[in-house]
């Protein structure tokens, strides 16, 4: 059974496009990345899954149950960390966490205390006195205190310092090892690359690719970094499958997909100063999907 499954999920805000025909299936126990530029429809998808908003057409199930019909029931086992965390300003952290815990059928006290310790959170402060990063920490504790089977993260690291990010990633990995499924939405590919098993790429409201991170990284692309006396042109590698070609001040970088022997023989004809062949990061691999957005910006 898939933990999340959407079928032709579509959401229009009046005439404005939210998402169009989104088909997703997230398997039990996986860390699923959901990647796309801002405004691509990531948050719309998540809000539809949480039935904060309703789809224009199509359907979504979580734990095999319709998200609208069985909303409250499935939310017993969902933990959600929104991009911007907002709570009741006049409450203390402690009472907010207890309040949150009181909605669940089980006793969350123990896990809550553990999480407070891990995130190094001062629970006696008022919400209104917290910095953005500290609010985010409250959000993490609040989202995980009921040990959910599905954790939905929407841009989770914004506002967290690098040390806390690491704590947070460790925590997420731990939860995953305990069996939780993670749905991780982000526009920062580096963090998705670090954590995820599979990624879906969303652009202009449509899913354009779903692939295993390992496959993307290992089999598909190689990154070349070549230093020569004069700049090169993409035509120099005519006929080869080359992406993200940049040549500046004698340094040329590009992504290559195909028979490695062919490209090596072409490179060997050049008058090289240096050559490095490295594993590209996801950011570079996905760059060409985003090129339209870059042109707009």
């Amino acid at each position: 059974m898939n933990i999340i499954e959407t079928k032709k999920l579509t959401k229009y805000y009046g005439k404005d496009r939210g998402i169009v025909d989104v088909d997703l299936s997230v398997e039990e126990g996986e860390v699923f990345g959901f990647v796309g530029p801002n405004g691509a429809g990531k948050s719309t998808t998540i809000r539809t899954l949480l039935s904060l908003i309703y789809p224009t057409s199509g359907s979504a199930t979580i734990f095999g149950k319709d998200v609208i019909e069985h909303g409250p029931e499935i939310k017993q086992n969902i933990g959600y960390l929104p991009a911007d965390v907002h709570y009741y300003d006049s409450m203390k952290v402690k009472s907010l966490l207890n309040y949150s815990a009181s909605f669940y059928d089980k006793d969350c006290t123990k896990r809550m205390e553990q999480l407070v310790k891990i995130m190094d959170l001062d629970v006696n402060r008022k919400i209104s006195d917290l910095s953005l990063g500290n609010k985010k920490k409250v959000g993490i504790v609040q989202g995980l205190l009921h040990e959910p089977k599905l954790i939905i993260l929407d841009e989770p690291t914004s506002g967290l310092d690098p040390l806390m990010q690491q704590n947070f990633f460790n925590l997420i990995e731990e939860e995953n090892q305990k069996g939780a499924t993670i749905f991780f939405s982000s526009h920062i590919l580096g963090e998705v690359q670090k954590l995820c098993d599979r990624v879906a790429i969303i652009k202009d409201g449509k899913i354009i690719k779903v692939e295993k991170v390992a496959d993307l990284m290992r089999n598909s692309y190689t990154k070349f970094r070549i230093e020569t006396k004069t700049d090169l042109k993409q035509e120099d590698f005519n006929g080869e499958s080359i992406n993200n070609f940049v040549s500046k001040k004698g340094t040329t970088t590009f992504l290559f997909k195909g028979d490695i022997n062919v490209i090596i023989s072409k490179v060997s004809e050049l008058d090289l100063i240096s050559l490095r062949i490295v594993e590209p990061d996801l950011e570079e691999i996905f760059m060409h999907y985003y090129r339209d957005e870059d042109a707009d910006a």
């Binding site: 904060l52 939310k75 959600y80 907002h86 009741y88 949150s100 909605f103």
Partner: peptide, 17 residues
């Protein structure tokens, strides 16, 4: 108004309740 609905309505409770 206060953007707290991403907290309240994500809890396991129906809008009716």
């Amino acid at each position: 108004r206060d953007n707290t609905c991403e907290f309240l309505y994500v809890n396991p409770i129906s809008r009716t309740d």
